[in-house]
């Protein structure tokens, strides 16, 4: 009699143990992550044509320190994806054309790019927490918060084709050169 009554209790104990260590405690790599900004380089003379940049190197400028984006270190490419800064709503980059870094000596034509946006946090899950999306994206070649004067050498213009950064499926910004 007693054993018979305990039987469903054992069942519930097993279920409880299984649920105590289940999958949603770990943020799996298949989860969506914060999207990067996708930039396409276009020909300044023929704005519908993609035009690759020779030896492109991109640095992020964080608190006056240059941080090279590892994957964009002197490659020939007509499109890139770069991460945006999450702690403040502006990201400061230096884009180098004909970039090279030999024995600590950096060479190339530099062009400042400032991206201004509003961050929007999006809940993903218990394990992953929140990712950021970005809205109201705008591009400057000077620091919009520092009354800077426009700088620039090799980039002739910009075009925002998608001011909302929710995914990396298509380009958000065209850069003409």
């Amino acid at each position: 009699m007693i054993m018979k009554c305990y039987y469903p209790i054992y069942l519930i104990i097993i279920v409880s143990f299984l649920m105590a260590c289940e999958k949603d405690d770990i943020c799996a790599e298949t989860n969506p992550t914060t999207p990067q900004l996708v930039i396409t380089f276009k020909d300044a003379n023929n704005t519908t044509e993609n035009k690759a940049v020779e030896s492109l190197g991109v640095y992020a400028i964080k608190n006056n320190e240059l941080v090279l984006i590892e994957s964009i270190n002197g490659i020939n490419t007509d499109s890139i994806a770069i991460p945006l800064r999450n702690d403040i709503e502006i990201s400061d980059f230096k884009f180098y054309k004909n970039y090279s870094l030999i024995d600590g000596v950096m060479e190339g034509e530099e062009n400042h790019i400032y991206l201004d946006y509003t961050t929007v946090e999006v809940f993903v899950s218990r394990a992953c927490g929140f990712i950021n999306n970005y809205i109201d994206l705008s591009v400057f070649n000077y620091d919009p918060n520092a009354f800077g004067t426009p700088t620039g050498t090799w980039i002739s213009g910009y075009e925002i084709i998608n001011p909302v950064v929710e995914n990396e499926n298509r380009a958000h910004v065209n850069i003409f050169h």
Partner: peptide
């Protein structure tokens, strides 16, 4: 508070947001 989940944070670093929701 929360740390923004960003697998591309090698450049800017992790950012912890402590504005409560």
């Amino acid at each position: 508070g929360y740390t923004i989940y960003d697998t591309n944070n090698q450049t800017w670093g992790q950012s912890f947001i402590n504005i409560p929701i």
